[in-house]
């Protein structure tokens, strides 16, 4: 199971962007933004795109407020700006989600095609109602149980809101989520290692 960082609990765009940069450096699979006023979601993801290199940009879009072609166009441009990292999560009726996916797949929809096509060969459009999102507590003992339960129940991608240091989350939980026999000893001992002072 992969862990993505849900940034929507922060109300400060600058803080969300800073957290996204940190997540990017720490190898977090994805960050989740959006959920604000309609029309602002993809532009925030675009800002994060140019200050990060690897993290996927999951963007929660209100799909009921615009034409599916407009949504697909915004996602396509985000995919180019981010160099293939766009991951749309759309909150809308299933038929709208299907039409956005068809545009992004290169299909003709009502006789029209999306131009430019996205950078990725396939952009997966996720139905917001099916996306797994949990709120972690910061208590690693409790949160380990949550992660293990999600993973063992077959969740493949999980977005978490996390109240603490991202490095701690990555060390103890993103790692743990990947396999069902994570050697906890390694994370615990890593906490005890002296800080790396090489740069000083």
């Amino acid at each position: 199971m992969r862990i993505g960082l849900d940034l929507r609990k922060s109300s400060d765009p600058a803080e969300r962007e800073a957290l996204a940069r940190q997540a990017d450096l720490l190898g977090v699979w994805a960050v989740l933004v959006g959920g604000g006023p309609s029309g602002t979601e993809v532009s925030e993801a675009a800002s994060i795109a140019i200050s990060t290199n690897n993290v996927h940009l999951a963007v929660w879009v209100d799909g009921s407020s615009e034409h599916p072609l407009t949504l697909a166009e915004e996602i396509s441009i985000l995919d180019h700006l981010s160099e293939r990292r766009a991951l749309p999560v759309i909150a809308a009726e299933p038929q709208i989600i299907t039409r956005v996916q068809q545009f992004l797949d290169g299909c003709s929809v009502d006789g029209f095609h999306l131009v430019p096509p996205p950078a990725q060969t396939i952009v997966p459009v996720w139905d917001a109602s099916e996306v797994s999102v949990v709120e972690l507590t910061g208590d690693l003992v409790k949160d380990r149980v949550t992660i293990d339960t999600e993973r063992d129940n077959g969740t493949t991608h999980l977005f978490v809101s996390w109240p603490g240091n991202i490095e701690t989350m990555v060390r103890h939980l993103s790692t743990r989520a990947l396999v069902n026999d994570f050697p906890q000893l390694v994370a615990d001992l890593a906490d005890l290692l002296p800080e790396n002072n090489w740069s000083q």
Binding site: S43, A46, S47, E73, I77, V115
Partner: peptide, 11 residues
Amino acid sequence: YCPALIPAAAA
């Protein structure tokens, strides 16, 4: 031809 100016402007 760019169809979505707001994300491009944001970047």
